[in-house]
Design a protein around this nucleic acid. Structure first.
Lengths: 260, 260
DNA sequence: GTCAATAGTTTGTCCGGACATACGGACTTC
DNA sequence: GAAGTCCGTATGTCCGGACAAACTATTGAC
């Protein structure tokens, strides 16, 4: 019968021909240097998908490092989902078609990376009493003053999305000129705010007449909606956004890693 | 003037009254025991948000553990986004309203967790030639045979989503009875398949007449669409799904952590 | 009174070793 | 020929220590 087994065994034709080295005089941590080299080796194909990485002890000896340091480097790649370790077997490269896990990025940067020539039209940049929803997300009293920014995001001159953001007052100064020149997250990072995590809700609904007019879609057209609350390293909510995207032009793409 | 600083200093009124202990006779790793206790202390409020965890060396001494072990426990919580460490300052609990980061779960389990009494109607469970899209996602030749499963997911008797899944042949036997009793991911895990990561695309579009009939929505109603390719630990694609959800009944909620 | 140098605290990085545990293959046995 | 057993190998866990770097707060000088 000879039923074809599913990806039976990878003989690992390449024992370990890749050249690794670390620079002890560099301020960059050794484990990080090694992790970067391994990652680039995976990206360029120097480390074939499915191939086994030599065992940790031998690798450590070859590089003049201790095993904990080598483990720390490998662990960081495992956490990124690039490698898998199995006890008694070894560490091997995951062969995935996945590009890179999307990070917490702004629509502006996403469009820029896609070569889409983004532009922004600021419709509103003012201080107003917080709505119930915005107040709850930001953890401030309802009706207290927050910064409200409303923007229309364009790509190649065509509207892509309508973005409404609420920020705590006194977080950072936001000039309309800055907002038209770059993304909000970039401005926040530039102001010394370290973005840490975000809670997102993605849904869909039909466009109202007003929304349709803004986005050049007919009334009732399907829209992709996203609400996002962003937190900094201390857990403070630094931004709450309520956005709508033209479903005909935009979709969210992201990657999920299973926590082990 | 006394301009109110934004969250100036947290005096940490509670030095360390929480009771921690480890059981060295347990097969559960020590760092994991400690991490679990800290996590539950955070959840129950025993560790207040923003409070400082005592320094690592003192904590290690108090528990009779070494510093690397304590660090490993704390690091796992930092990776989960529950804590933040700052050199020269200490480790503190992030105060976020966030419940828990969504894992790679099936709609069935999500509904079950929400107390929604899910049900499944299997519309199709057969072997068919792979479409171009499914073949590309699964990494098999176009037109080769794959398992195709089509299901309607109900909650409280009302349709919620229409799920179409493509799986490699010979991956696992799928009986219609099993599919109606539980979720696909649960069946795969039960068959010894370790789910590792998934690539997802979420968008929206208007319902066709046929889709509207299945989901009890009018033609043209907004639908949330998701396409997901799931990979196992070795990087094999084990499932490709193309799903549509009633936007009026369902939204995706997830959390993003910034990789540092 | 304001600013700079300094001391102390805490995490970050790194080392070398030890034993436990799981996996896979080879061998033996039935 | 098929099942169970043993053993080598590689990662998992844990220890104890050392120095470096970053942050805070105090002290000192101008």
């Amino acid at each position: 019968m000879a039923t074809c087994r599913y990806a039976p065994i990878v003989p690992s034709p390449d024992p370990a021909p890749l050249r690794l080295s670390v620079d002890r005089s560099s301020p960059v941590p050794l484990y990080f240097q090694l992790a970067q080299q391994l990652e680039s080796a995976i990206e360029t194909g120097g480390l074939a998908p499915g191939s086994l990485l030599g065992n940790e002890i031998e690798l450590a000896g070859r590089l003049g490092l201790s095993r904990p340091t080598v483990r720390q480097a490998i662990q960081s790649l495992v956490d990124k989902g690039l490698m898998v370790r199995r006890r008694g077997v070894g560490t091997q490269v995951v062969h995935s078609q996945v590009k890179r896990p999307l990070e917490l990025s702004s629509l502006y940067d996403d469009l820029l990376a896609a070569g889409q020539r983004p532009a922004t039209r600021v419709l509103r940049n003012s201080v107003a009493p917080a709505s119930a929803q915005a107040a709850a997300a930001l953890g401030v009293p309802e009706g207290s003053e927050v910064v409200v920014v409303e923007r229309l995001r364009l790509a190649h001159g065509e509207p892509m999305a309508h973005l409404t953001n609420h920020l705590p007052p006194d977080l950072l100064p936001l000039s309309t000129a800055d907002l038209e020149a770059t993304g909000l997250y970039r401005l926040m990072r530039g102001a010394g705010i370290t973005l840490h995590s975000a809670q997102q809700t993605v849904g869909a609904r039909a466009a109202t007449a007003e929304e349709g007019r803004l986005l050049a879609e007919p009334e009732g057209a399907p829209l992709l909606t996203m609400q996002r609350t962003t937190y900094d390293a201390k857990g403070r909510a630094v931004e709450f956004g309520s956005h709508i995207y033209r479903a005909s032009r935009y979709a969210f793409e992201f990657r999920l890693l299973v926590r082990t």
